[in-house]
Design a protein around this nucleic acid. Structure first.
Lengths: 114, 114
DNA sequence: CAGTATCCTAACCGATACTG
DNA sequence: CAGTATCGGTTAGGATACTG
């Protein structure tokens, strides 16, 4: 859905009838982004914890999706200067504002899937 | 986001944490599906009319997205036995039930895009 | 622990010519 | 009018080995 970088969102819109729906979908529509966001709704989470609960995704992809969410301002990344290193991901305010959106998507899916 | 055919939705879910969100996103998350659904919210629409309002999408892709929405039960296709042929697309009941979902997505996008 | 680097596949999307 | 057919490009996603 996404073209390449997250700076293409505007472009995306223009060719898509200038519809805000496309913007939202482009933000949360990645292959693993729903799962990530869903987990982060429950609070700040370590990288290793995300990995553990999503064994099907490869490391590269998980990082990639996290980076995209981060550069789109939906989540933020906190590095704790410890040994061994600790990194936690959490929703930004923008990310938190997505909660009703995510919930509607989740509810509709739960209600209508076979 | 989608694997290949629309019959893979269940599979999709299993690897995605069994989250209904992924199901919904897979249904409406195609490149042009938001635009299509948005237009169909206003009522039954001819193929040629869809084409006209979405000049950026190629015929093959438009048809493909329509077929996917159709096989997922979100829209239906009515052929009128006339010359020249007329085909109209409209939301099914399932499709109509998506309206609140689409609206939330649209509203959030309009409110938060730059 | 939390990532990169490298290489690879397949899905998705597109232009254009043609047809019932 | 409403599509197919054919071919081809781009990019999202993935497996695996390695590193600060």
């Amino acid at each position: 859905m996404r073209k390449s970088s997250s700076t293409n969102l505007e472009n995306e819109l223009l060719i898509n009838g200038n519809c805000g729906m496309a913007y939202t979908l482009d933000l949360i529509g990645g292959r693993w982004k729903p799962s990530i966001l869903y987990k982060l709704l429950k609070g700040s989470t370590r990288y290793s914890q995300l990995r553990k609960t999503m064994p099907a995704v490869s490391e590269r992809i998980l990082i990639l999706q996290l980076r995209e969410l981060e550069s789109d301002g939906v989540i933020s990344r906190t590095v704790f200067p410890e040994v061994p290193p600790r990194v936690e991901y959490q929703l930004t305010d923008l990310g938190k504002s997505l909660e009703p959106v995510l919930r509607v998507l989740s509810d509709w899916g739960d209600a209508n899937r076979v």
